[in-house]
Each structure stands twice: as C-alpha cells, then as structure tokens.
C-alpha cells in the first residue's frame, strides 16, 4: 500500500477541490459507521430518567453502570460467555487441526485415493443436503442440544482446506526429501517441518476461524434449546427480542436506573468486547485474509 501513497507525488501540488470533496465524503462515512456504535455505548451507560428526557445526547448525562449490573446479575450473559468461550476454543483447535492435517495430506505427492478424496471434499462446496437433512442427521447422532454439535460442525470448510493446501505446496520439496533421508516419517515432517513454516497462514486462519465460532448463531439457534447451553449470540438475540419482558425493569422499581434499551445495548457491548480486543491482531492479517478469503463461498 505504501507504493500508492508515494506514487502520486506529481499530483500533490494541484486540485484541492477534489481533495476537500473526498475528505468530506469519507469523513461523513466514518461518522455514519461510528455513530451507531457510539450511540449504543452512550445508551448503555445512561440512566432511565436521563434517557427518557433526552434520547439524543452526545454523552451519558447521568452516568451509571446499573444496566450492566442488572444484565450480569440475571446470569444469562455469563452462561452465554462460558459456552461461547468453550465453543470458540474447542472448535478453533479441532477444526484448525483437521484442516491443517487434511490440507497437508492433499499437498503430498500422489498416493492411492488422493484424487477421489479431494473431489469428494470439493463436491461439498457445490452441493449440500440442505437444512432439514442436516438437522435430522444431528438428531440421529443425538447431538441436539449439545454445544459439541456447534464445535464439530461449523469450523471446517473445503475452501479453507484448499487455500492451506496451496500454502503447503509452496514449501520446497528438498526440505521434505532431506528429512526423509534422515528417516523422518510423514507425521514428523508435518508436525516438525511443514507446520512451523506456515506460521502466518495459520495465524490468519486461526483468527478468522475463531471469529467465525464467536459469531456463530444459526445452527446454535436450531440445535440448542436449553438456556444453560446457549452460546452468547443466541443469548444476545433473546435479550434483544425480549423487550416486553425487559420493559418492567423500568416500571417495576419506579425511577430505577436500569432500563430495557440500556440493558440491550449493554448486552451488545459485552458481546462485542472480545472482538474489539482481537481487532488489532485481525487488522494485522487483513490483507492476507482478504486475498485468500475473498472468494469464499
């Protein structure tokens, strides 16, 4: 990117009109993206009374943490956190290992069945049994209402395996041959030689897989129905949809500081925080992630 920044030097002298226009447009866009977040933060830190008087304020007029306290005291969000952390860690570890092992195997020289297995995997990108047959399969496996269903199902993708395979194919063949002569088997080569060489690619995919698990919602809603197993996103959805149930927070204790909208936004904030913490790292691998991931189906 540095190249484009340096290259239009000859253009630096003229045309301030265009520059102003572009700057204004992009600043507006930044505000449009930033404001809804900011508004949510303000509301989550506001008291009911102040919000009722003035819903449009640039800062919390009566700063309070009561919305967060109320939310946490209800316990749901804690359970959601626990489940999602479990799903994210287990899921990322298992699917990264499976995908790396599989892509390494596909990157090796010819062996019986390689092509068949590869085509088999490829076909899943083009055709799926659909929502109902997959749901019934979970039912048959007795995995309805288990967090393991989410852990095992949502992390692996044929597309990622192909990208990782391309990464493995780029390591020089001599390395492997040298190790072979020293008596190393494929397992040792994979773990000791190939994996350490793929650091950047592994970091990229681990981050994006982890974010995927953190944000997973669809199959969690379909498969998990008991409150104690719900992941964070499902809990958040329930809290946001539960507006009627939350309304009595404010009417119950007259003038109480917590209120429905404030609690909802507090829940949104708590769901977002880990992603915000991860964001600087994600940003580091952006371009790589985009270049390899943009054609994801």
């Amino acid at each position: 990117m540095t190249k484009t920044m340096k290259q239009p030097k000859s253009r630096l002298k003229q045309a301030t009109g265009w520059d102003m226009l572009i700057f204004i447009l992009l600043t507006l866009l930044t505000l449009i993206i930033f404001l809804p977040f900011y508004n949510a933060v303000v509301i989550s830190l506001e008291t009911n009374r102040a919000y009722a008087l003035n819903p449009v304020s640039l800062y919390p007029v009566e700063f309070t943490l009561r919305n967060y306290e109320h939310l946490i005291s209800k316990g749901q969000i804690g359970i959601g956190y626990k489940n999602t952390v479990f799903i994210t860690f287990m899921g990322t570890a298992l699917s990264m290992f499976s995908m790396l092992a599989m892509s390494y195997a596909f990157s090796r020289r010819h062996y019986p069945g390689k092509k068949l297995f590869f085509v088999m995997m490829l076909f899943t990108m083009f055709f799926s049994g659909g929502m109902i047959p997959t749901y019934l399969q979970f039912k048959n496996l007795g995995m309805i209402n288990t967090t393991w269903a989410i852990v095992l199902y949502s992390g692996i993708s044929a597309y990622n395996v192909i990208i990782l395979k391309n990464g493995f194919e780029q390591t020089p063949a001599e390395l492997e041959e040298a190790a072979k002569i020293d008596g190393a088997n494929d397992l040792v080569i994979f773990l000791r030689i190939e994996l350490p060489l793929q650091g950047a690619l592994i970091a990229t995919f681990t981050l994006f897989t982890a974010v995927g698990y953190w944000n997973e919602w669809f199959w969690s809603t379909l498969l998990i129905n008991s409150g104690s197993k719900m992941p964070l996103q499902v809990v958040l959805k329930a809290i946001v949809a539960e507006s009627a149930a939350l309304e009595d927070v404010s009417t119950g204790e007259a003038g109480a500081d917590a209120f429905a909208q404030g609690i909802k936004m507090a829940a949104v904030m708590l769901t977002m925080v880990p992603i915000m913490c991860l964001y600087p790292f994600l940003q580091k691998y952006f371009v790589k992630g985009v270049l390899v991931g943009s054609v994801k189906m």
């Binding site: 290992f97 092992a101 195997a105 995997m121 095992l152 494929d186």
Partner: peptide, 13 residues
C-alpha cells in the same frame, strides 16, 4: 501416515 492425517477431515465431510 498421510491417510491418518486425512481421517478427521474425511470423517467430518
């Protein structure tokens, strides 16, 4: 060993 490495992914699919 290559087949061994393929097993988790293949089982998943």
């Amino acid at each position: 060993y290559i087949y061994l490495l393929l097993i988790p992914g293949l089982l998943y699919f």
